[in-house]
Structures are given as C-alpha cells and as structure tokens.
Design a protein around this nucleic acid. Structure first.
Lengths: 251, 251
DNA sequence: ACCTGAACACCGTTCAAGT
DNA sequence: ACCTGAACACCGTTCAAGT
C-alpha cells in the first residue's frame, strides 16, 4: 500500500527530489492530496469494510492526513459519495438498442446495475437518496430510453420507468448490503447468504397462529423460496412486463 | 410536556405519594421509563425533526435521563427503529379481498403504505434494510396474499410480489424523506416540493450535449414531469400489471 | 430490577494558523 | 493554494456503582 503510493508519486506531477541522510529513516514522500486519491481511498475502504467504515476521518487516516485536509478538495461527505457513484457508474455499458429484444435488453441492463452495486460493496448505501446527476448515470438513462424507444414504449412511460427501475435496483442492493453487514464476519462482496436467514424466517412464519395468518403460515415455504437472484429475476420480469402493459395509458 | 408526565404518573401504576417540604422546589416526579415511552419519544422526535434527530442521546434527553438508562429497556438503536415500525405498521388496514377488484385493491394498499410513511416522517429511513418481522408487517403480508389469491395470482408470484412491493414503496418513501430533509427549513411531513427540484434538473438535462444525449435532452420535459404522486401512481400501475402478466410463469 | 455518571471510541465540520 | 492541529458539538454502547 505504502509501496504503491511511492510509485505513483514518481510517475505523476513534477519530479520531487528527496535527499535522505544516512541515519534518517526514509520518510515516505507524502503524495499530494487529490480528489481522485480521495475517491480511490473511499472505494477501497467500502470494498474492504463496508459503507459504514467510510468516514471523513477514516478516509483521512487511509490517506495519512487529518480530516480537515480533505475539505480543501471536497465540500463534504455527500460529495465523496457522489464522486464514488460517478466513478462506479462509468463501468456500466448499455448496449445499442435492438428492437427485437428490447425487453431482454432492459432486463439485462438492470441485472448489470445490480452486479455493479455488488461489485462495489457499500456503493448502494451511498446511492440512497442521491439524485443521479453524474455523467455515468445520465449515460445509463440515455441508453435505457433508447431501448424503451426501440420497444415502442411511450416517452412518458420510458422516462418514469428509469426512475422506477433505479429505485428498485438500488433498494435491492441496499437490502443485500445491509444483510451482508449484519451476517457479519462475512467479507463484503460476496452475495448474502439467503438460505440461512430464510430458514429462520420460514420457521418464524410457520410458528404463527394459523387462524390469524392462514396464508403466511401455509405459504411460508414459497415466501422464503429462492435466493437473491431468483427474486431479482422475478422483480425485473414484473417491471418490464408491467411497462409493456402500461405504456399505452401513459402517452 | 412536564405537565402531561405528571398526570400519567398518577393514572398508571401504584400510587406513589410524595411529600414536598415547604421550601423545597416541587421536583418533577420522574415517570418510570418504559419501552412504550421510548417509542413515543422516538416517533415524536422523528415527526418533528426527521430521522437523523433520533439518537439514543436525544431520545434520553427527551425522556429526561441519560442514554445509558435506555439500555435497560431496549437492546440498541436498531431495536428502537424496529419498535417504531411495529407501532406504525399497526395503523395500516388491509381490506377483505374482492375478486372483482383485486388489482385496484392491491394498488390501494400500496398507496396506503406510502401514506403511512409520509404520515410518520423519518419512519421510512428506519425501515431501510429492516426485515419486516413485526406483527403489523405480517398482517399486511397476510392481507396482500389474500388479495393476490382472490385475483388468481400464483402463490410464488404473490409471495415475491410482497417483497417487491415493499422494497419499491419504502425506496420511494426514503427518497422523499431525504429530499425533504435536504430542501431544508421545510417542516417534515409535507410532501417534498417536486416542482422546484425538477425545474433545476430539467434545465441541467437540457443543457447536456445533444449529440451525446439526444433522448435525455429532448425528453427533459417528460423526464421531470409529474409530482411524487404521479410517479408513484405509474409505479404501482407497472407493478400490478406486471404481476398479472408474469403470474403464470411463476407457478 | 432499574437507573446513573463517567468513560471509550468514534462521528462531520470549522477555523485560525502555518507553509 | 494547500495543509494542519485543535476544537466544537455530536454519536452508540459499556460498565461499575448506586438505589
């Protein structure tokens, strides 16, 4: 880690020569703080220890300074979150629209969005309540609109669908992130262990008074069936089928 | 407030007689701490100042004790959130299923869920990542399953739809709550001022390079159209129509 | 059994001072 | 222009001590 820092400091910027006197321990030539380095550190902390581990103070420590130094480069923690999301969303590629397969394309983009959140554990938590105004998010929107258009979906329905889909995917991602953190000692990044929690949940539902909860008790199995992917696949199937069904009434 | 406390302390529990010596200032006879009073205080703080204003410390201050005292009645902050949600969810009434109007009934329950979150500002934030295991949430599930069943929806689709719907509604509610808090000085509780934010967002989209963002720029108007209710109405229309369309493939 | 004060290990943000 | 130390006003939780 410290090794990588030193390398970079030789690559970037004007060369800074440092004379190390014989006895003196080779003090790490402190690299200048930049927005990019702050974002790098934030993503690293998130990936390793989850969203809650990212604070202005932990960030500063990771960058080997005090928290106050960060404020010369970012306005506040919210801006850090925004920047992290911008960086991440650049990874998503939306395919050119194919009118024959617009619905499968739509579902695939939603799958890719969830995969993106999963690939960057903690990022979903940062996305809560964020208005997606970064270039990456806008590119994704443009792509989604193009696919909807190719599918003959009305503009109003397409536009609102972007909202709906983003809300759904991020909600699922946040849920997963929190479960993972709760089922602790699991390293963040892996998919949450649905089966373990579901087993408990199922037992709880079955133990409910059948008179008051006839359906929940009898359907406990089906309610806790499937892993995260199964449920997500159902979710995006509902969304896209619903969009098709509703499109004409929102012209 | 101190007045109300004194009243209650005379009503409930064994009578406690307090002799006040002439010169002594009439010290408020401190009411015993209970889980209910903690939940009351939490809901009050949330309603008045939003979710972030509820901390174990602010809660303790509102109850006129130190934070440590709370831990005799609740395990931690998460349990407080859980208890608040349990309390709130008891307010939701799910109608008896009417096979003729199952889809409208479903949409109405989702509307009521959002209304519930709005009526208790901050509650949506508490719901993030919470597994709905309280009695209120389970009753709501039972009701939703009954309506789906009346509509001929397959059990697997019904079960997963409960998840999907809950995720969507709470995501919207959280979004609204955060926007409201950001558009500060607005008292929590009212609907967020969509028009103001959307005007800005629309201008931003229209200012984008048209070559790279042909659809976003040309559809800026339609993308920012409608208030929260319009968008939510679209969302639940998509959800319910999608459920109908997809039901048979999930048997 | 319930409550308390004090402490521990944290937060985000600001600001005067340094280089 | 950029960085720093120190401070301000907070967090959740624990724990020994009191009643």
């Amino acid at each position: 880690m410290a090794e990588r820092k030193r390398e970079k400091s030789w690559q970037a910027g004007p060369v800074r020569i440092r004379v190390t006197l014989p006895g003196e321990p080779a003090a790490a030539p402190k690299e200048r703080l930049t927005v990019d380095r702050i974002v790098d550190a934030a993503m690293g902390l998130m990936a390793e220890q989850g969203y809650d581990a990212v604070s202005m103070r932990s960030l500063a420590k990771a960058l080997d300074t005090g928290p106050a130094s960060l404020y010369a480069h970012v306005a506040n923690k919210e801006e850090v979150d925004q920047l992290v999301l911008d960086r991440i969303s650049a990874e998503l590629v939306v395919p050119a629209p194919d009118p024959e397969h617009w619905d499968e394309q739509l579902r695939q983009v939603l799958r890719d969005m969830l995969a993106l959140y999963r690939r960057h554990p903690g990022s979903a938590r940062a996305a809560i309540g964020m208005i997606p105004s970064g270039m990456g998010a806008l590119r994704t929107m443009e792509g989604l609109l193009a696919i909807c258009d190719a599918g003959g979906i009305s503009p109003q329905a397409s536009a609102w669908f972007c909202d709906l889909a983003a809300a759904y995917v991020s909600a699922i991602a946040v849920e997963e992130a929190i479960w993972m953190q709760r089922a602790n000692s699991t390293p963040p990044g892996a998919e949450p262990d649905h089966t373990a929690i579901d087993e408990q949940l199922r037992a709880m539902m079955e133990a409910l008074p059948a008179a008051e909860f006839p359906l929940v008790t009898s359907m406990a199995g089906v309610m806790t069936a499937g892993d995260g992917d199964d449920r997500f696949e159902f979710g995006i199937a509902v969304l896209v089928a619903g969009l098709r069904a509703v499109s004409d009434t929102y012209r």
